[in-house]
Design a protein around this nucleic acid. Structure first.
Lengths: 208, 208
DNA sequence: GTGTCAAACTGAACTGAACTCAGGTTGTGA
DNA sequence: TCACAACCTGAGTTCAGTTCAGTTTGACAC
């Protein structure tokens, strides 16, 4: 049950919100969102199904919350990794490496995010779902802008050949996140190798 | 309603299978699989909901069929594009270009495939669903093998530096298909530009 | 032309998972 | 020790997907 992390601070002392999020990440990550029964998450936390509705308006609201939190974490990690880097190539390398410096739990969150990104395209009818969706969309936009900025800076400094920075940013992002579609911990290729290979790909894509 | 394409040949003279597939592609592509009601597809074709079950065992069976057909089409296109190319770099370029030489209807199919790939990971209980899932998985494996082969050949001929060809193939595929997540016809960047940019990225990733 | 039969279809009923309702319990903090 | 908000529950509702028990249709043989 691991009542750890994911705390957003605004919870009561006997709140199970964090436990629900953790359980949901494990279920959604392993069986997929549609593949997991909402009641199974309740069972794993040790409460009745209806108790879930005290914390989340709907099952989708929980999913969107997980996605938003993961986007926030990803973006913070990017910001932290690139903060000190003055050389554009080094900044690019740091950003790519940061994307793969994740725990197994975070891998699940990336996978969930990846597999349900299309949810963000269509408006939701439930109020809280829509709020989370908007927040997630805004984070996606900011992350795209972060990458575009990194590329634009590198191009204006002459470190990267000039190309459409926005489309190139999308391509880099697509390349990096696509890893979570097939990568499995304990698989044939260790994550460190994947990380090195993708880092090199990013640099060659952009800087040559 | 456009009773065109997608015919697999083994249908009766008054079959609406092709019309259902076309309508389903349009609905699933625009609103997402979970976002479209199965009855809405029936409505678009002009039949009652229950008539759908004459052609597909379940809604998911229809989705898996669409995905399998699109994988088949993609693979054929790869094979045709790379057939005559003896130079590895030219073969790589041709493969990348072929991936973007698609109609608007095929773009929808790529999007559907992309958004529901995680379905292929977990076994299905329905017999026909499971058959389509196995076929789709096999096609994915073959497509990965096609790319790996292309890379291995280029490396052994000295046209590409030696790197893990399987992981690099996954990266190329991930880069290419990730485009369908954000690309929209009539958007700011025309597909021809995207195609050129991604083609260049592929070559730099692999050949430098 | 006419009869046959599988293919094609239908309205009514069923199912199961997400969700609502109308309260009951609990433990924190005043 | 009492109040009350946070937390929880079992019983019921809803609705999309699916099954059932047939009816209609039209291609083809004769």
């Amino acid at each position: 049950m691991t009542t750890a992390r994911v705390s957003t601070g605004d919870e009561g002392p006997r709140s199970k919100r964090a436990a629900i999020l953790t359980a949901a990440v494990e279920c959604f990550g392993e069986f997929g969102f549609e593949g997991t029964k909402w009641s199974a998450v309740a069972g794993r936390v040790g409460i009745g199904q209806t108790a879930l509705y005290h914390y989340f308006e709907t099952k989708t609201h929980c999913l969107l919350t997980i996605m938003r939190l993961e986007l926030q974490r990803s973006r913070d990690q990017f910001t932290e990794a690139t903060a000190g880097q003055s050389d554009p190539v080094e900044a690019l390398r740091a950003a790519a490496r940061a994307a793969f410096a994740v725990s197994e739990h975070e891998i699940l969150q990336m996978r969930i995010l990846q597999n349900n990104l299309s949810l963000l395209a269509v408006p939701r009818t439930s109020a809280k779902e829509e709020t989370e969706r908007q927040a997630a969309r805004e984070l996606v936009r900011q992350i795209e802008r972060d990458w575009t900025r990194l590329l634009t800076r590198g191009m204006s400094e002459g470190a990267f050949p000039v190309r459409d920075p926005h489309t190139l940013g999308q391509a880099l992002l697509g390349l990096i996140v696509s890893v979570w579609r097939w990568y499995r911990p304990g698989g044939p290729t260790p994550l460190s190798e994947v990380s090195d290979l993708i880092e090199g790909c990013c640099v060659r894509m952009v800087a040559e």
